[in-house]
Design a protein around this nucleic acid. Structure first.
Lengths: 307, 307
DNA sequence: AACCCTTTGTAATGAACGTTACATGAATTC
DNA sequence: GAATTCATGTAACGTTCATTACAAAGGGTT
């Protein structure tokens, strides 16, 4: 009996490697032989496909134990789906995994050996980390949970569009929020580019829309102007600002003040980011089914282009 | 000197295990011990970090052969970076790989038990804040100060251009870094827009240039391709990635792995941001006079247009 | 140049692994 | 209902593996 460029001989499948231009994956081989598998072997197949390909990289004994079968059953399984030995199957699984993780080609040099004792940079790391964690702790402790809840519902139930806008350094947060919200719902827009062009976005903003603004000290006049205009058009504004409050606070429906001081040259956006992540997570949890379906759809659309 | 639940003593970093609730990854352990490695061991570290973590999942003999060293050297390496045995290290690598292969959809096991008396959002805030601070503490404790120092010097002394590039969610960090670096030095460029257009940026990149890349799990193939191409043109790469290491690590001169897990649907960029802020602050302190003069100039230019 | 200390490889050992032959049990057929 | 076949586990075997002890080689110092 011949099968796909291979042949059976004394109960074993031999593959004709010379004709086999594209090797099937282990998963494909399992699917192919699925109807010939016994009950125990099907348990193994499900375990491997369910935790692919990691389950197959363990030892025979471990894999067998995990599925509640004996070691020889695993070997018979490997043999049945077309491998000469168990390590043979593992080699293929490893190969697939390596391809999936982008295979290596070139090499670079590792940093030279440095045998310094204590480092000034260690102190810098420590200072920055401590300032950031303190800011996060203080900021989030001072947030009113009910306010967060309302903001989440505002975004989660918004029938119009959600607009994102940030200042000089906080535009990064707007970008971050934009990318996340976009995977969770449709009609998310980012106000970007030169501020002279923002008027075009302003045209479309109305009372069904939500505007999320990031603005910390050195409050930017163009951002403030945009907020004021949007407010006059009855847009609902959610504001992330610092503890001293941007003037936008007066137009905003929800204000989240976070700490930004670090004692160094620059302010920190770490606490703002954590606060933002809390909001994003909340929005995701607000209608989980919709989000899950959307991510699933997104991944399905992306898969063909990503091998 | 103390650093985030650990302390330096006789040039070595000791971690306060009672506070260290999350295990360091193998990559982090290597980075941490980078100073103490011998020449052969550095070859191994380099091979493992370059083909992470697949290289470490092979047998001792294979791994040794591939690096041109003997088997015992591999075992001494495993022991030196803190493992009881080689299989012990492999088990950890496997675990990390499993975590790395998870998609946001798989992770979204949302129906969380939250029947506390206080406000449900209060708990969300608390969880997120705790996860973020833990990530920050763990990440920065695992960074080698000497590596940070080198990266700072690389950017601070760079005579060419500094390029910034990020992936889907991490592009926000690239934006953030761009805005800060731009106030500190000239010749800072951001690689942005559709990846098809990145080739134009690639044209100008050479060995005098530094490329700062942000890439975390769900590593993007277009970002990886850009890094590889830039590396072939002898650009120096600084990589911010997660604890499981982007494949770009093999091209990078300096790698900063940070924690991103939160136990929620989404990964967190908070720790990455704090790490980035440390780098930025370091660059600022590296040549403070130049930065101060530049900011002064900048504000002078801006004043007339800002009332 | 002789010394010591560190680094690295060689060879031997014991454990773990994959593999095989055989026995047991269940399901099926005559 | 006995015989047969197939699926599965048990136990023993040979191999490969990680590991260890020890010796050689290299680099730096006096």
């Amino acid at each position: 009996m011949t099968i796909l460029g291979g042949w059976y001989e004394r109960g074993k499948l031999h593959l004709d490697v010379t004709q086999q231009d594209t090797k099937p994956t282990v998963a494909e081989q399992i699917t192919q032989k699925a109807d010939t598998l016994t009950a125990s072997e099907r348990k193994l197949a499900h375990a491997l496909l369910g935790n692919y390909p990691m389950a197959g990289l363990e030892t025979v004994a471990t894999f067998a134990d995990r599925c509640g079968v004996s070691a020889p059953t695993v070997l018979r399984f490997a043999s049945k789906i077309g491998f000469d030995s168990y390590p043979d199957m593992q080699a293929r699984l490893r190969g697939e995994l390596e391809a999936r993780l982008q295979s290596p080609l070139t090499r670079s040099s590792l940093p030279r050996s440095r045998n310094r004792s204590s480092h000034p940079m260690g102190e810098l790391l420590h200072e920055i980390a401590e300032a950031a964690t303190n800011n996060i702790r203080t900021s989030l402790a001072n947030i009113n949970p009910a306010e967060l809840q309302s903001a989440i519902e505002l975004i989660g139930d918004c029938k119009g569009s959600v607009y994102l806008l940030g200042g000089r350094f906080t535009s990064a947060l707007a970008v971050y929020a934009y990318e996340h919200l976009r995977t969770m719902r449709s009609h998310v827009r980012r106000v970007s580019g030169q501020s002279a062009k923002w008027a075009e976005d302003l045209l479309d903003i109305g009372k069904r829309d939500v505007l999320v603004i990031f603005d910390v000290r050195r409050y930017q006049s163009d951002v403030i102007a945009f907020a004021e205009a949007a407010s006059k058009q009855d847009a609902k504004i959610i504001l992330f600002t610092d503890q001293w409050l941007s003037p936008i606070a007066q137009f905003a429906r929800h204000v989240f003040p976070v700490r930004i001081e670090t004692g160094t040259t620059w302010d920190s956006s770490a606490a703002s980011m954590v606060m933002l992540e809390a909001l994003l997570e909340g929005v995701g949890q607000h209608n989980p089914d919709q989000v899950r379906a959307r991510i699933k759809h997104l991944e399905a659309l992306r898969r063909p282009s990503q091998p």
